[in-house]
Simulated scan of single mutants.
Amino acid sequence: MRHTSTAYVLALIVALIGCKSDVDTNMVTPTPGNPSGGAGMPTGKVYLFMPEDLVATDSAAQVTARYTDPTKRYAHGILGDPIEAGGLFVTRKGKSYHYKLDEAYVFEDLRPRLADVDNDGELEFITIQTSLTMGASVAIYKIKDEKLQPYTASPFIGRPSRWLNIAAISDLDEDGKIEIAWVQTPHIGGILRIARVQNGALDLVDEVSGVSNHRIGSRNLCLSVLTTSAEGKTLYLPTNQYDKIRGFQLIQNRIQLVDSVVLAVDANRPLADQHNFLSPLPDRNCIFVK
């Protein structure tokens, strides 16, 4: 087990120098390449949305989130095409907020995720943010003082063309605090990492190797399932060989293997569709593009 609050905060500060945030209280004119319009689309400014324009929505909180500013400045293509995002666009209760990354970074992701990770009653925006020279990180954004701004992040992996995929955002050990689970380098010896937000930092709790939740080029980011039972929550992930799925629980801040199922996993289909899981929890952060 390791606790690396200082490293996480320093990584975040270095990553986001030179980024810009703005707020628009008007409702954005779609660009010619994104003519869809509709709820959460502002009308006062023009932003360039992504080709697929996937939108995370929470109707009760009146919140939407999507990526913007498509760019080809990062030649990795792990998600099947050369286009990544250079900005994050959020609406909340009629106001719109835009955060544009420095040229040294991209969002290497398909859609932001929504969750209240610090239990303050407001949704945060969980992204996969990548440094062109240092690889991917989990980066959380927050609306504070009427600005969309960085909140906290994991360290970058440490070299270019290294990626991660978020597996779960939930109170995994049912202690009242939200954890974020991701698989680091899912294509080359994947490592399951679990961290939680504490005092404004993303603290690593524990990690185990031998799992994966993505295949190179796939648009399926939904190769994980979270279930619940009297024994607690179990996070299921494929093994590196995609010949089994393994179930893990977070017990006393340690990741414990509690289940294993022989299954030939299809990396291009959501894992929930491939096995009869008992009491699966709904996952609005499951991202799958055919």
Rank of each mutant, 00 (worst) to 15 (best):
E108I: 03
F107G: 09
S209R: 14
K72Y: 06
R162S: 14
D81R: 05
Y97E: 00
A167R: 00
S161M: 09
D116V: 08
G158M: 06
D259T: 10
Y8A: 09
T29M: 09
Q249Y: 05
P238D: 04
K144P: 01
Y151R: 06
G232K: 04
D145R: 13
R159A: 15
I13W: 09
L223Q: 09
A264F: 02
Q241C: 07
V205I: 15
I83Y: 02
D58N: 14
A201Y: 09
N220E: 08
G18P: 04
I17S: 05
K45R: 14
N165D: 15
R2L: 10
Q149S: 15
H98W: 11
D81M: 03
Q252S: 14
K233D: 08
A264E: 11
R254L: 10
R269K: 15
T57C: 12
T152G: 02
P282I: 11
D171R: 13
A60K: 14
A230M: 08
G18R: 13
Y97M: 00
L250I: 06
K45F: 06
C286F: 03
I191Q: 13
L114I: 05
K147P: 00
L192P: 15
I128P: 05
N26C: 08
W182P: 06
A136N: 05
E124Y: 06
L250P: 07
